Simulated scan of single mutants.
Amino acid sequence: MSGLWSWFFTPPPPPHRQTDLRYVKDYKPHTKNQQLRILLHGPAGAGKSSFINSVQSVVRGRMYTHALADNTFATETSTDSFTRKYQTFKIQKGNPGTFYPFVFSDIMGLEPTNGVLVDDVILAMKGHVKDGYRFDLESKLSEHDGFYNRSPNLNDQVHVLVCVVPASTIDHMSEEVVKKIRDIRKEASDLGIPQVALITKVDLACPEVNTNLKNIYKNKSMKDKFSANVGIPMNCIFPVKNYHEETDLVDDVDSLILNAMRHIINMGDDCINFRSQSEGSGRNV
């Protein structure tokens, strides 16, 4: 077993799939017509789009591929981002035209040279980037561009920032990418946006986990190392396995995804409530 997986401890109780599923499905912001915006960022090929598809599959009870994902992620050889545009994904709830009150914003991957600019991620967090904007590798979105949102409302702004990182790259992530993650995290903190990290592809990083996904609860070292590198607290880091080759849902996979989503929703909801109160009192956040 590699050093990444060498420190074991007494595992916590596994997440309760049905309880978390009901929580995610029943979530409603306190403010009418409010939506919780979740911004995913991380290295190219980390599984951002696949996580969106996985959440949609779990809550809808069958496999979905709404957010297009690059199939090279399984081999982890891709160095270019498959996602090029700023895209918002909603999940249908019941009848067509009705959606869950949380949305995902997907962006280009963070790479040392050919990735999304930190300035564009910051603009997206503030709600200034409109859907469909194609990221420019040389310069950030201009205020004069038609995709620049001059007057973002509370629904346009990001309420929780999620950093998605593959388990196998934690030990050798480039300094440039780590710096980008730190810079984005610092700006998010200044904006009052809570942050979560998802460690993906846990099954590909460890044979024991690949054999039995419950073994993920025995591991602490990868969370500890990533937390030390980028500063995200341990209790805000969640290992997950996205759906990619399965044709049917698996309870253990669902449990990891739903446990992460429950915490993401809680943090985002706290952000929404704080901003709503601040706007009501005339404060700018």
Rank of each mutant, 00 (worst) to 15 (best):
V240G: 10
S168N: 11
F238K: 02
C206P: 02
D171E: 10
S142N: 02
R134M: 13
N210P: 07
V202R: 07
A228Y: 10
E246A: 11
N235S: 12
V162F: 05
T211R: 06
K225V: 14
S151F: 00
R182M: 01
D136C: 15
P194F: 05
E246S: 06
I193W: 00
D145S: 01
V164W: 01
V165N: 00
V253I: 14
V196P: 03
P152V: 01
D145N: 03
R182T: 07
P194H: 15
L161F: 04
E176R: 02
N219E: 10
D252V: 06
N235M: 11
I232L: 11
K179Q: 15
L204H: 15
E245W: 09
N242D: 05
M261Q: 08
E175G: 10
D190H: 12
N155M: 03
N219W: 08
S168P: 05
V253H: 13
V196T: 12
N210V: 04
E175P: 01
G192D: 10
G192F: 14
V230Y: 10
K140G: 04
I199N: 01
R185Q: 15
I170A: 00
A188Q: 02
N155A: 03
F238C: 03
F226A: 02
N229A: 10
A260R: 07
N229I: 11
A260P: 04
I193M: 00
L258C: 00
R185G: 13
H172P: 05
E208T: 08
K214C: 07
S221C: 09
S189P: 09
P233Q: 08
R185E: 13
V160M: 03
I184Y: 01
H144K: 00
V178Q: 08
K225F: 09
P233F: 07
Y217K: 06
D203G: 08
E245F: 10
D248V: 15
N219S: 10
D183Q: 13
E187M: 02
D203L: 11
H172Y: 12
R150W: 06
E176T: 04
P194S: 13
D156V: 00
P239T: 06
V209H: 12
E245S: 09
K186A: 14
H144I: 03
N149H: 02
C163Y: 09
V230K: 10
H159M: 03
G146I: 04
E208S: 14
N259S: 13
V162I: 02
I237A: 03
D203E: 15
R185Y: 15
I257N: 07
